[in-house]
Amino acid sequence: MEILMIVTAGIIISVSTYLLLTRSILRVVFGIVLLSHGVHLLILTMAGLMGGSPPLLTEDASSYTDPLPQALILTAIVISFGVTAFVLVLGYRTYKEHKTDDLDQLRGNGDE
């Protein structure tokens, strides 16, 4: 199961990398969202899957799933939301200013 998850994360990261390298701002934003998904799954997998009951002491189980990566991922999810929103608005504003979302046309002058 771990191997399957690692491969899944790898594929997601692969696709997101490809999206990051395209010319459209919107696709770059998609790439960022997808990349964070891939990384979250990877972190979760690295910590071990199905290692026990959910990290709630009320469960009163003998073993719990590792809570630390979950806390890390929770933080990461919220942060990536902030980043995505920011980049999205950046792209939106860029489009409104320059009437294009093609990154090749958005490149600056030589002396900038």
Binding site: V7, A9, G10, I13, S14, L21, L42, M46
Partner: peptide, 12 residues
């Protein structure tokens, strides 16, 4: 991008 994915998989 495929290289990136492979690196992640191998590391994982």
């Amino acid at each position: 991008s495929i290289g990136m994915g492979l690196v992640v998989i191998v590391t994982g």
